[in-house]
């Protein structure tokens, strides 16, 4: 069975970095375009309708969030994966809340990145250990008012899954550790992503400034 290669757009203001990513991804994906400004990225995504956009968090003119906002509903089939050297929690959480389906750091290896792209293209959420740590941190701030229990709290199982991811477990290893299927792990992670995007706990954006981040 040969899956079609995901069509990918690279958005990053550093040309050197784009060519590096392109080389690392190799034949695993089909890079249909590159953009280095927010405006270019919005136009390119709208015109090419790629499967996945690899999105830099930090760029002049608003960065990843501005691209997400600018594309809006104009590319319904496109999914965004944030890729950044910045581990500042408020930036990362900001891009996720803006609609990205995951976050990986730029130090990720080529095969891992290709795998992440495939998973995002398939509709899954991709949590790096660091993002899992941020999310746990955000949701465990105990002084936050809980308005909507469904959105503002993580279930015990979701917490367990996130902890294992933060400890460096791959999804497969998480499944084995918790005696659940890989699909169930995906479900939990997607559910956490949904809460992250929809919860209105103001801590999600504010907590980052209150504590040590990196």
């Amino acid at each position: 069975m040969v899956e079609p290669r995901p069509r990918v757009v690279l958005v990053d203001d550093h040309r050197l970095f784009r060519s590096g990513v392109r080389a690392e991804l190799g034949d695993a994906v089909d890079v249909v375009g590159e953009a280095e400004t927010v405006a270019e990225a919005i136009a390119l995504v709208r015109s090419t309708q790629p499967d996945v956009v690899l999105l830099d968090v930090h760029m002049p003119d608003g960065g990843g969030r501005a691209v997400l906002a600018g594309v809006g509903t104009a590319a319904p089939g496109t999914r965004f994966l944030a890729l950044s050297v910045s581990d500042a929690a408020e930036d990362v959480i900001g891009v996720i809340r803006g609609g990205a389906r995951g976050y990986v750091t730029k130090s990720i290896s080529g095969p891992e990145l290709a795998d992440a792209v495939r998973r995002v293209a398939g509709g899954d959420a991709v949590f790096s250990p660091r993002l899992a740590g941020f999310v746990l941190d955000a949701f465990s701030a105990s002084d936050a008012p809980v308005v909507d229990e469904d959105l503002d709290l993580l279930t015990a199982r979701e917490r367990e899954v996130l902890r294992l991811i933060a400890r460096g477990y791959a999804y497969k290893e998480v499944a084995k550790e918790l005696f659940i299927s890989g699909k169930t792990v995906e479900t939990h992670v997607s559910s956490v992503l949904r809460k992250l995007q929809l919860s209105n706990r103001h801590e999600l954006t504010r907590w980052a400034t209150d504590r040590r981040l990196v």
Partner: peptide
């Protein structure tokens, strides 16, 4: 060595 700290 990658360090992730939740809470402090």
């Amino acid at each position: 060595v990658e360090v992730i700290v939740v809470g402090d």
